[in-house]
Amino acid sequence: MTFLGTRSFRVLCAVGGVVVLLLAGTMSGSYQSQIASLAAIYVIMATSLNLLLGYSGLLSLGHQAFFGLGAYTSAILCTELGVPMLLGVVLSAALALCVGWLIGRITLRLRAAFFVIATFAVAEIFRLIALNWVELTGGPMGYSGIPPVSLFGQEIISPQAVYPVVFVIAALVVVVVARLAGSSLGYSLRGLAENENLARAVGIDTARHANIVFSLSGAMAAIAGSLYAHTLGFVSPEVFGFPIMINTLLMVIGGGIGTVLGPVIGAVLFTQLPEALRFSDEWRLIIFGLVLVLLVRFMPRGLYGTAVRAYQQRKAQRAPEPAPSDTDRTEVHDGA
């Protein structure tokens, strides 16, 4: 056994990764720091969608509804009622948890394509409400003057200082999802994804578990939305828009669906990609669309998922004894 692949190597990698990411966001210019915060927010989004899509096999195209809900809840509570920023984040998540439970109760009765379309319809209705309920949301003009990120009553203005706060919350979400994936809930979710009838036959309450995970991932998306509102100081109905959903999907699929680190890598890469392509606005979205098609067509496991699998296969070739029998992408474990 080489050093590569041992537990201490993994811990070293994790610590190294955290340090590099923290330094990258705090030691650079204001603009880069803001992009880094955005990446961390998308890490939360992608990780929460992965909990739903990657582990439970439930494709929701309405995840942006929770992002938008979190953004507006935080914006309205903190601006109108003077609620402290962190409490705003918590309340957003709590509201999304309740709303998610309700939406889950309704939409999870449907399966496969019908669930996809129902979630899409719900999110569109949310967007139309945000657009048209002008007294509450400010309508198409959006909602501005949202208080910035603050800690213990101290407002944090500089993007270099905002980033560590967002980073810590994102890291917490990733750890919680990794824990959930390894818990009994995580395994029953995989059962739901692979064979719902079988899972039910061995006594798993799939309907309840699906609803729990739907509302939990919704709450996480609301945290992302809430942080987005405080980081930018401004929200518009675009936070309910389908592009948010597509970005998040691209991150989950591109990074590695059903893995803990895949969506994190995807989120970091795909928030940088638009910046790298900034020279050409016309080609930016064309490349985005093309990348999504090519990923699904040629690399459905994503960058990290493909790499992990290649590594596992090489290891299996060297030591053929307990041959891994997993052929499904949901069974890619990354040991995190």
């Binding site: 899509l53 096999g57 494709l59 195209l61 496969a112 394509a113 996809v116 597509i246 999907l249 699929i253 016309e282 080609w283 979205l285 064309i286 985005f288 669309g289 093309l290 990348v291 999504l292 098609v293 090519l294 990923l295 699904v296 067509r297 459905p300």
Partner: peptide
């Protein structure tokens, strides 16, 4: 190629990518 997965999500993701691609090609 995606039919072999027997997974509803794959064609959905591919056609979403295709729609972004076609929309923006049309703009171009």
């Amino acid at each position: 190629k995606l039919r072999q997965y027997d997974d509803i999500a794959m064609p959905i993701l591919a056609t979403i990518g295709l729609s972004i691609l076609l929309q923006n090609l049309a703009i171009l």
